[in-house]
């Protein structure tokens, strides 16, 4: 996984040229070469995660094309773009969830606090404890609310006794803004909660193992507007302690919750910048087309 600044990857020249060919057909904007240059400010000072020249392949097909971006500390980074642009794929690279897809292959480097997470000696189990994830559809375990939150600390051995565990569960639920609603029914099944509560339970489950980064894959797409608002508030609160990367289809949501926004297009990272800049004054034409609704 060494860092290569060359335009073509020496190991996979044919794969890449194939991918380029495909894209130049699909794209109606100007022709570009491999690893289209990202406009804006993809890099930050003191990043939590750094991604350099990340490429993702599903078998022969290239899904992510040489992306370089940083995730800062205590920020919400929103990733937007039309369906199939690779934003979810990229998100799932950040905690190696793509490992579960047998045909998926990741090239380039992704570092968490200067450790390459794709290094062969890196264990994904502690990695996923440090980079937690919240999914599109609320997916609590079919266990009690308590066990849902306590599961992570239990398997990672974070607590010595029941008292400590109780504490973690309580603080996690408080942080997730769910404590007041569920404190009297911790032993009832988590699946009995409403959709929005379930999603907040999933967030509590993710933060119970004290991660550094939380990845959110369209966390509000299955929720009604009120539940959405509640989760968005929560994201804003959580930013003080965690780095959050959120994929979303709702541009208003990106505008509301994020500090930086990245626009993806057909496997390329087109533009990254401060959220208010991106939405008011996009530099790239594709970004502008997308946020003004002319495209996508």
């Amino acid at each position: 996984m060494e860092l290569t600044s060359n335009q073509t990857h020496p190991a996979f020249p044919t794969l890449l040229s194939g991918a380029v060919h495909q894209e130049s057909e699909q794209t109606r904007s100007q022709a570009y070469t491999t690893g289209r240059k990202t406009v804006g400010t993809p890099f930050v000072d003191k990043p939590r995660m750094t991604c350099r020249d990340v490429e993702v392949y599903y078998g022969e097909k290239c899904a992510i094309n040489k992306i370089s971006i940083d995730v800062g500390c205590n920020e919400v980074l929103a990733m937007i773009g039309p369906s199939g642009c690779g934003k979810s794929t990229f998100l799932r690279c950040l905690n190696r969830m793509n490992d579960t897809v047998p045909s998926c292959r990741v090239v380039g480097s992704i570092c968490l606090d200067e450790t390459d997470i794709y290094h062969p000696s890196v264990d994904v189990v502690p990695l996923r404890a440090q980079v937690g994830m919240v999914f599109q559809k609320p997916n609590p375990f079919p266990k009690s609310i308590y066990d849902n939150v306590a599961y992570g600390p239990r398997i990672h051995g974070l607590t010595k006794n029941k008292v400590e565990l109780d504490e973690i569960v309580e603080t996690s639920l408080i942080k997730a803004g769910l404590w007041e609603e569920v404190k009297d029914r911790l032993l009832e099944p988590g699946t009995g909660l409403s959709g929005g509560q379930q999603q907040r339970l999933c967030i509590a489950r993710a933060i119970a193992v004290s991660p550094e980064v939380i990845l959110m894959d369209e966390p509000c797409s299955a929720l009604d507007p009120i539940a959405t608002a509640r989760v968005e508030e929560l994201i804003a609160e959580l930013r003080t302690q965690f780095s959050i990367v959120i994929v979303t289809h709702a541009m208003q949501q990106a505008a509301r919750v994020s500090q930086r926004t990245a626009y993806f297009h057909l496997g390329d990272l087109i533009e990254v910048g401060a959220t208010d800049k991106i939405f008011t004054n996009p530099k790239h034409r594709l970004t502008e087309d997308y946020i003004t609704g002319r495209f996508g």
Partner: peptide
């Protein structure tokens, strides 16, 4: 067993074996 359960378990850092034994198998 819905894949979301597997993802949920993997997402909090359960190993493959733990995912299967704790979540998938009981379901």
């Amino acid at each position: 067993v819905p894949p979301s359960i597997r993802e949920a378990a993997l997402g909090v850092g359960a190993s493959k074996m733990q995912t299967v034994i704790h979540h998938v198998l009981p379901l």
